[in-house]
Design a protein around this nucleic acid. Structure first.
Lengths: 239, 239
DNA sequence: CGCGTTCTTGACCCATATCAAAAAGCGTGG
DNA sequence: CCACGCTTTTTGATATGGGTCAAGAACGCG
């Protein structure tokens, strides 16, 4: 438990910093201004945006691609805490060090700005502080959701709730709710949901056989029966 | 994911609002003043301090006893998110509704003050806002810890890390690190760690047989080999 | 002392992990 | 365009940790 404030990313699971951007036009403009001048970086899959222990001097906005956020346990096991996509902010640490790793899962573009600049904007626009507060509260809620998901649920429930979360995200950004892309590997999904890759794969295959989903490619899922998937995600399935 | 700020408790696992109280004498005094006048409530075991959905109008400081904080899944399963003990604050919701339940696990005394009063104190002492921010950041870290614990770990690892967390808390408040009280039931521990009561019980019995702990009473644990327990907690045990 | 609750222990079973190998993608270079 | 090798995914066979069901034992508590 670090003493300093370590809000260290703005995004897990389904949450997003988007509300911040939407709800405060002045801050949004200043942020965008700042980010427009900010340096852009291109990353290949598997490159790191930042690593646990790095000084948290910048925040990053993902322009394109996707990033996984994870911690490594002392025995080498990995827990992915969330995925961040285009439009999301990550690395929102106000001081100290990053307390997790951020790694591109596909080709990714990010823009970065110094945390100090964010501070300054927050000074100019006091509501931004509150928005930051909201963001971390949202993130806490997302982490709790994940905890509930991995704590007691079966493999089918976990996978179904993962797919439905991605579907809801698509809906939110105006894309087809019934077609879900999986830019992350099976290993990433497994480490997020607390399963093994084999179980993730088997569970998806089983859902395919049950005509709940289709898998035209391994990185693309068609949700055929979203009602049933939702029921399974909520634990009302075969249990 | 609620839109409003829903910092809804100040305490999970090992974290505590104590730093806030320690580090800001002016706020501390005002808080204490306010709490001294505040109404006290006595609760028996199993009585609720507040329930999910209640309007979050007050914050509570636990004067004596212990409280569990939990959410109920749609299928009835329960996830305990943390335990709060004397000195801890709970129900720190700034607006909206409580997003979890708080239930006494033993006879408990709490004092409450209106959230509005907290607001006022925060206005007088701007550092309090930052402390609140710290508190929620700390809670996020605690929730992530719990996620790491329940996500991938074996029963022994979970139980060991639970015991060591309680031991560290004892150390922090100046009590014997090697004697741990378990005011909560096995069911509570199980719902916290994502196990069943039988597995919790068996794991404790196994540790007793291995002379890692002693169980003079079911609610009291003597940590006989804290080094080994720590190793197990970190996943370096029999794995 | 007796009754209800909680805890412990035992026997069995099942979901998921583990180990292993085949199949499917996918980029590279000819 | 195909062939090659590497990585990722899928599928199969088996093992096992913890869940489930059941029955005692211990512990309050009136």
């Amino acid at each position: 438990m670090e003493a300093v404030l370590t809000l260290s990313h703005a995004q897990t699971y389904t949450a997003s910093l988007r509300p911040l951007v939407k709800q405060t036009p002045p801050a949004r403009n200043r942020l965008d201004d700042c980010l427009a001048h900010a340096s852009q970086r291109r990353l290949q899959a598997k490159e790191f945006v930042f690593v646990e222990g790095d000084p948290a001097k910048h925040i990053y906005r993902i322009e394109a691609g996707a990033v996984s956020l994870f911690k490594i346990l002392s025995d080498g096991r990995r827990q992915i805490l969330g995925f961040a996509y285009a439009g999301d902010f990550i690395g929102l640490g106000l001081q100290g060090e990053h307390i997790m790793n951020a790694q591109a899962i596909t080709g990714t573009k990010v823009r970065s700005m110094p945390v100090a600049a964010l501070y300054q904007i927050a000074t100019l626009d006091p509501t931004l502080s509150f928005k930051l507060y909201q963001t971390i509260a949202q993130e806490l809620a997302a982490t709790r959701d994940l905890l509930m998901t991995t704590g007691h649920r079966s493999a089918s429930e976990r996978v179904a709730s993962f797919l439905m979360a991605l579907s809801r995200r698509n809906e939110r950004i105006g894309e087809a709710a019934n077609i879900v892309d999986l830019p992350m590997t099976r290993t990433d999904i497994a480490d997020f949901l607390g399963l093994t890759i084999e179980t993730v794969s088997r569970t998806l295959s089983k859902m395919k056989n049950q005509r709940l989903i289709d898998l035209p490619q391994s990185a693309r899922v068609h949700l055929m029966d979203m009602n049933e998937l939702q029921r399974i995600a909520e634990g009302e399935g075969s249990r």
